[in-house]
Design a protein around this nucleic acid. Sequence first.
DNA 1: TTCTCATTTTAATACATACTCAGATGAGAA
DNA 2: TTCTCATCTGAGTATGTATTAAAATGAGAA
Lengths: 114, 114
Amino acid sequence: MKVTEVYSTVATHLKTHAASPQLFHLLADTFKALGDPTRVQIVWALSHGELCVTDIAELLAVTPSAISHHLRTLRNLRLVKIRRDHRTLFYSLDDEHIEHLLEEGMEHVRDLLP
Amino acid sequence: MKVTEVYSTVATHLKTHAASPQLFHLLADTFKALGDPTRVQIVWALSHGELCVTDIAELLAVTPSAISHHLRTLRNLRLVKIRRDHRTLFYSLDDEHIEHLLEEGMEHVRDLLP
DNA sequence: TTCTCATTTTAATACATACTCAGATGAGAA
DNA sequence: TTCTCATCTGAGTATGTATTAAAATGAGAA
C-alpha cells in the first residue's frame, strides 16, 4: 500500500472520474496542436488579429496547402474560428484561453533562453 | 503588397527578430511535451505534489520504463525537477508556469465537452 | 455560361515518437 | 564485498505526423 498523501489524492481523483481519460486525451490533443513550430506561429500571428490563409502562408514562408492543413487541426480543436468575406476566409483565435496559453508558454520559455 | 494592419504588424515582429525562430521552436517543444496523454497526466499528478517514478507508474498504469522516458523529455524542457531521497527520486513541477498552463488548458477543454 | 483564384482535399513520402523489452547503472542494505 | 531495488538507457517496432504536389471545390467576376 502507498502511504503518501499526494499518492492517495491523485488515486482518488482518478477513481472518482473527476479526471477522466477523455478529458486528458482532449487536453493532450490541445497541447499537441500547439506543439508544432508552424502551428504555434500561426496562433501567435492570429493573436495580433484575423488573417487569411494566403497571408499566413506568405508571412511564415509556408505553402498555402500546409497552412490549410494546420488550420484544420486547429479548427477541429476549436482553437481558431472562421469569418468569410467574399472569396477569402479570415481566421482568428476562438477564445481568450488560447492567448493566455500562448503568453504563459512564452513566459516559461523566455526563462530558458540565455 | 499586403495592406492590412495585422499583416504588417506580424511581418515587422518577424523581421525585427522580436519573435525569433528558436523561441517558437522551444515554445512548440514545450507544448509538444504536454501534448501526450501520459505526459499530461504525469504533470497533472505532479501538480498535487511530488511523486517518485514507481508511484507515477502505478497511478497511471504504465511501466516505470515508459514513465522514465517521459520524465526525461519533461526534464529536458525544465518542466519538472528532481529531489533525491536515499534511493528514490522525487519529481515535482519546476515552476508555477506549468500549473497555470495546465489550468488554462483544462478550462479550454472543459468548454468542449458535453 | 466560362474564367479566376482562394482554399481545400487526397495521396505519397519522409520523419518523428511512444511503447516494450532487455540490460545496465547506482546507491544503500546486509 | 554481494544483494536488492529504484531508476535509467538502448534498440527495435509500430504508429503517428508534417510536408509537398496535384487535383478538386466553390464563390464571385466577366
